[in-house]
Amino acid sequence: MPETTDILNALVLFGNFVFMPALSYGSQLALGALGVTLLFGILRFANFAHGDTMAFGAMVAVLVTWWLQSLGVSLGPLPTALLALPVAILATSLLVLLFDKYVYRYYRKQKSPPVMLAIVSVGVMFMTNAIVRFIIGPDDQRFSDGQKFLVRARDFKEATGLNEGIAIKTSSVITIVVTVVVVVALFWFLNRSKTGKAMRAFSDNEDLALLSGVNPDRIVLITWLITAALATIAGVLYGLDKSFKPFTYFQMLLPIFAAAIVGGIGQPVGAILGGYIIAFSELAVTYAYKKFFRYLLPEGSEPDSLVQLLSTDYKFAVSFIILVVVLLVRPTGIVKGKVI
């Protein structure tokens, strides 16, 4: 039987390397998937430009942050990027509304099939991607400042006397807090406000919503605004947590889509669930448990390998496998979503 401190050490280790990172990554995915799923529910297509929309929003935030930093503006321990967020959301909203006006609207009026709109979104993806690369370049950019850690691993160890420590990054806490605030606000809006209900009604039964006097243009406009805000927030939080690189946002498309489908496409609750499921599986499967088991197993029986189910290079495989299993077993997702 392992000693209590060993169990605690193992748990702290797991918390530090799997639970905390998964919580913040899951929040970022959830916000991204919420955008995809809302757009899917209302405009009824899979938006391939979503990753690049996130990159665009994050880019604006990076630029504004740099500008604020050059002015000497700072939020103290918090990253300056939070101040840049409103500007970034505004800019992203403008971008998606322009694309809607000049690109998507035409196909909506034509009642084009969803797959056509998905292809159109590929064109939008190209253009957004080019804009981002043209303005800021394809390389890594750092823009986080303020205090890096809320709790340092060393302080934690000293305070508790354990061998392992939990380091709590400021960016993780901000991610989680912002996500909770955004999600609560979004759900309040969807479930309590008249416009939010109209959005849900439109998503549920478009013809009947029109018959009830819902103005489709207004619903679409609001959906784009929310999507832009969600994409920007997700993009900025991800950038603060890791770093800003345009291509990584494109690569987030897969886990985001997977999260939306796993949860049940068109279902906001599902998107959030899906985001955390994907993030937790990804980190749990790619974590090397060697040290973890060393605490728990009796001496002499420790594993000599890394005890890592999949190398981190295959983290995409995790979202993909979950996606495939869901498509096979329950194509409607966990919370029953739209399937034709």
Partner: peptide, 13 residues
Amino acid sequence: IFTTMTVEENLQM
């Protein structure tokens, strides 16, 4: 009807 919404929400719509 709006199947995913409650009866009351249907009436509100």
